[in-house]
């Protein structure tokens, strides 16, 4: 048994394609981006080696830390919203009537591209013609907020579509995980007189714990490098109020022609994400599982 399951040739054969592709197309560019971070380079003229200066500047760059803080907030909210998705998946995966139809409907927004989602939410948040403020005015709210224009609100306003955009993704994963639990276990618990909530808390959730851990990592990592809707809906504004690390990096590298500094920010983003991931894995690790 063990001999077959540790056949080196097969391990190599099965792992090599993934490792090769990721090594060449992801790890090498990452190293290069860390290297560009050591340069004073506008992406056009010749590079000039300046050592760690970009990284030093970044560590003292208030705008960078502010955008990092925004990214952290997004990660926090994304991770918390997983609870909601898990509840939805638990309901959909239980044998209620119409679950099949509901599940399909719930996943629809996930199919839309970011372009469509951004346009939709721009319309939702429009201060004068938007859906949200129309509803608020209907209910007698005077001076409803300027969602994307108010620097105190813009960041949180933009979190909602981002979190909503990924709802389908996580519900789909949880659903598949829950359906993977052998039905016989649940039936046995029912016969023992356990309530649906008890079954969910004591059996289903522990059984899919590995999947939940993975989704926590996915949502946090995805949030820390998030870019799409922020860029389209507010461009990081007003005046940086909704800037996140990836949009700040993009602005520096592609709009301000400071490619060296932008690369340094991109590399720091990676380091931060890496540290956060390691912390999450340590926090969620249990004895019996393999340490990833």
């Amino acid at each position: 048994m063990n001999k077959i399951m540790s056949n080196k040739w097969i391990i190599f054969l099965y792992t090599f394609p993934a490792l090769f592709l990721i090594g060449v197309l992801i790890v090498v560019p990452l190293i290069l981006s860390g290297y560009f971070g050591l340069m004073d380079w506008d992406g056009i003229s010749a590079m000039e080696f300046i050592g760690l200066e970009n990284y030093m500047v970044a560590l003292q760059d208030a705008k960078f830390w502010e955008s990092a803080f925004h990214s952290f907030l997004l990660a926090l909210f994304s991770a918390l919203s997983l609870i909601l998705y898990l509840i939805v998946a638990l309901i959909l995966a239980s044998k209620i009537k119409g679950a099949n139809l509901l599940r399909k409907i719930y996943l629809i927004p996930m199919l839309l591209s970011s372009v469509a989602i951004a346009q939709l939410w721009i319309k939702v948040y429009n201060p004068t013609n938007g859906m949200l403020n129309s509803v608020l005015i209907f209910f007698g709210v005077e001076n409803p907020p300027n969602w994307l224009a108010d620097p105190d609100i813009a960041l949180y306003a933009i979190f909602i579509p981002i979190i909503w955009q990924y709802a389908g993704f996580y519900i789909l994963i949880y659903y598949a995980a829950l359906k993977n639990i052998p039905q016989s276990l649940i039936e046995a618990a029912k016969i023992d007189g356990a309530s649906p909530v008890q079954i969910a808390m004591k059996m289903k959730i522990p059984l899919i714990m590995n999947v939940i851990k993975v989704t926590i990592v996915l949502s946090v990592v995805g949030s820390l490098k998030y870019f799409d809707l922020i860029y389209v809906m507010t461009g990081g504004g007003p005046n940086g109020a909704s800037e996140v690390m990836a949009s700040y990096m993009y602005k520096l590298a592609f709009e301000s022609y400071d490619f060296g500094y932008g690369s340094a920010i991109g590399f720091l983003l990676l380091i931060i994400t890496l540290i956060v991931t390691i912390i999450i894995r340590k926090l969620t690790a249990t004895k019996e599982e393999i340490q990833y």
Partner: peptide, 21 residues
């Protein structure tokens, strides 16, 4: 200026003008 101008794209403002708003 129109309400919430800092959150509006030029295109949205233009459309308001062109819709006589």
């Amino acid at each position: 200026f129109v309400e919430g101008f800092n959150g509006l794209a030029d295109e949205e403002a233009k459309s308001m003008f062109m819709a006589e708003q």
